[in-house]
Amino acid sequence: MTKAESCPVAQALHDCAEGDAGALERLVALEGGRMLGVAKRILGRTDLAEEALQEALVRIWRKAGQFSGNPGSAKGWVYTVLRSRCLNILRDGKRLSLLSPEELGALQDAREQSVPEEGWQMLAGSSRLRDCLEALDPASRHSILLAHVGGFSHGEIAARQSVPLGTAKSWIRRGLASLRECLS
């Protein structure tokens, strides 16, 4: 069975690549709500999240053909495109400069709360990933979650944990090595 036959998201990507505009609508129906949720978690604001999702879907439409040779899952690819649009907005000073200091503060608070140290388990659902994350040392785990779920940079992660940049980087590196082993 090909990837497209086994998964509606992969099928939608396949049809997008063929130029079928209805396929993009199917993708939005399948994943749009969750994608907006992911974008809100990273960006902390609904307007920015909607913009990121629009940009991501345009990009998915444009690049859907590139997915065909990808060894990973269709969903994984779709969420990667989305997260990269979110991070782009977050790290684009020009876009955020339109916000008032109060709005920026609220945005940072919202992002902060998206990655709790206590109760992080809900972020990983009931998956194998949760068990693997559980096995990590708390500092590595929190750093990885700050990056992936909150969209925080190396520098921000170091600052949040009050450690030097190199320490944060090595926590992440070590954590990912264990994680990869556990997941494989």
């Binding site: 609508e25 939005v28 992911v38 997941l183």
Partner: peptide, 25 residues
């Protein structure tokens, strides 16, 4: 990359769904 990405995918799928605005499409 694909393996790690798919391994971490549950973190994305755990996000609460949000309602798309009516004019989104």
């Amino acid at each position: 990359v694909a393996a790690l990405r798919d391994g971490l995918l549950p973190l994305d799928l755990s996000a609460p769904k949000a309602d798309l605005p009516d004019d989104f499409m």
